[in-house]
Design a protein around this nucleic acid. Structure first.
Length: 188
DNA sequence: TACTGGATTCACT
DNA sequence: GTGAATCCAGTAA
């Protein structure tokens, strides 16, 4: 398994988001494969639209962990991107691989499909909080490429990228036989 | 200093 | 399908 370096995040945010699919994230002894990401560039929907104390990470770094609290209840895990620009990639969903019992305990659920099938869920399963904000890759958190090939990916909304297995199923995406189903939208 | 609303999730109907 | 939970960054004054 090859460990990803900071340079992995140096390029275009959308490209980084796509390349992150299938990669393995290791944190707090937990391991999972990323199956859905979302690219945030310097646009209206992004914190990066203006430089503030919070969004400064997206301006000043690439390959760093960017964690923030949403709705006062849930954390979202991002990685900053673009060496010569501004952006971040939100990790929206992952397939649990190791320390699944720990994830179940933190989440308070048994269903494997319900452990990491959302940005807030993923952070809860991994025990991610704002203390992880600003971490550099390789400190407590690491990403790996184990050679897994994405054969069928799809862009389902602006910058939102996942792995499509069956066009008749609603997203959220799934990998191999582990289904991550979400409400809403059908991919065609 | 006060107010507003959000890159979500879950329970309930 | 709908609404509540929850808190803090950003903004306006």
């Amino acid at each position: 398994m090859r460990k990803l370096s900071q340079e992995f995040f140096a390029g275009n945010t959308t490209t980084v988001a796509r390349n992150l699919l299938g990669k393995i994230i290791v944190l707090n002894g937990c391991k999972a494969r990323i199956v859905e990401t979302e690219a945030y560039k310097q646009d209206k929907a992004s914190h990066a639209v203006v430089k503030t104390d919070r969004s400064a990470l997206m301006y000043d770094t690439y390959g760093n962990v960017y964690v923030y609290l949403i709705y006062g209840m849930y954390y979202c895990l991002n990685f900053t991107a673009e060496k010569n620009g501004v952006g971040a990639v939100l990790i929206r969903a992952a397939e649990p691989l190791e320390a699944i019992e720990d994830m179940k305990r933190r989440r308070g659920v048994e269903d494997l499909r319900n452990l990491c099938s959302g940005p807030g869920k993923l952070c809860q399963a991994f025990g991610i909080n704002k203390n992880h904000n600003g971490l550099q890759l390789g400190e407590e958190i690491a990403l790996y490429d184990d050679g897994f090939i994405i054969e069928d990916e799809a862009i389902v909304a602006d910058g939102r990228i996942g792995i499509k297995e069956d066009a008749h199923l609603p997203w959220r995406f799934f990998l191999k036989n582990n289904v991550f189903v979400s409400k809403g939208k059908v991919i065609k």
